[in-house]
Design a protein around this nucleic acid. Structure first.
Lengths: 177, 177
DNA sequence: TCATATTATGTAAGGCCTTACATATTGACG
DNA sequence: CGTCAATATGTAAGGCCTTACATAATATGA
């Protein structure tokens, strides 16, 4: 059975990226489980950021990770429930709460460290051997989208132009996210 | 605000891929909307396959797309509800139903064709200019994982070996998916 | 200092998948 | 030919995000 998505090439580029990212997430989750560690792949950037950069608000985490505050807020809820992070009131702004790892959270980081290192080492070795430019080109592609979104680029050449307000188009063409 | 995930490099490779795939899906969904077409990004491979290769069962679609039958089954439910595909009994195997595009489904493909072409053209142009090896290296990376999974590779070097049954490890190391 | 815009967050709903489980057929073979 | 493993699918639950909406607190400016 040939790989239809791969055969579609550039037309299914996004589908392709999603498929690989989910495959990696799956194996990483399986690694945590195999090592008896209760941890989800999506928590990694949160733990790494809090561990390396100290206490931070939901919004700051979202900005560092380049995902929405909603996603971070959901992870926060789960980590609070599990007692892995704790909130500290921000005296200067009562809308925010600084998140920081608890003792248990810090201990978990220590336990995860070797596994994270192993995953990074394997990924680096694989990329070096099979796809030496992948990571750099991923950055280049993202940077290009920062300059001009896919939406804007496609609309420029699509036969039937979008019927969207100028305001919306403008935001789409160079939003900073 | 620097990009923490990008800075993490190989350690956050999967997160990086997911982020880009969702960004692309988002813009593509927005393009459909802007062109007044009620269509979801995940339907693309299904429509393309049924349109190019004719009627197919849920399992066959899943195999071609390299995702689980569960995912295809969910898309099927939605497309049936929307009257975009129809089922035809498979006389030789009553467990299966062949899926095929309805008139409306075919008409939708015709309407989508130019947009799909534009998206593919833009993606190809961007890749040519900013990331000429990306697609090929993505294939190479996937092929490497087919030979030996990330799970197996990491377990080989991880300090505390996984406490998993041999049967499971074997499946993980070279499952064909 | 008060009304208003902006900012920080939480949360519901839904898109995109997966795993796990349940059911209905088929197919293999003793 | 009846029993049992294998196969094809549907579906619930849940992980990973997003958009849209609601609320509370802060910043702004007349």
């Amino acid at each position: 059975m040939s790989d239809f998505v791969a055969r579609k090439g550039h037309a299914a580029f996004g589908t392709r990226l999603r498929r690989l990212s989910e495959r990696l997430d799956r194996d990483v989750r399986e690694l945590y489980r195999a090592h008896g560690i209760d941890f989800e792949p999506s928590w990694f950037p949160v733990f790494a950021a809090l561990s390396e950069m100290g206490a931070m608000s939901v919004g700051e985490l979202a900005a560092h990770m380049r995902i929405t505050h909603a996603a971070v807020s959901q992870i926060r809820g789960r980590l609070l429930k599990d007692g892995l992070v704790r909130v500290r009131a921000d005296a200067s702004d009562h809308r925010r709460q600084m998140l920081q790892l608890t003792e248990r959270g810090e201990a978990l980081v220590e336990r995860l460290q070797p596994l994270w290192r192993a995953i990074a080492d394997v990924t680096e070795a694989m990329n070096r051997q099979f796809s030496p430019k992948l990571l750099a080109e991923l950055s280049a592609f993202e940077a290009a989208l920062d300059q001009r979104s896919l939406f804007a680029r496609v609309n420029e050449i699509a036969s039937r132009p979008a019927r969207t307000s100028a305001r919306k188009l403008k935001g789409k063409s160079n939003g900073v996210r």
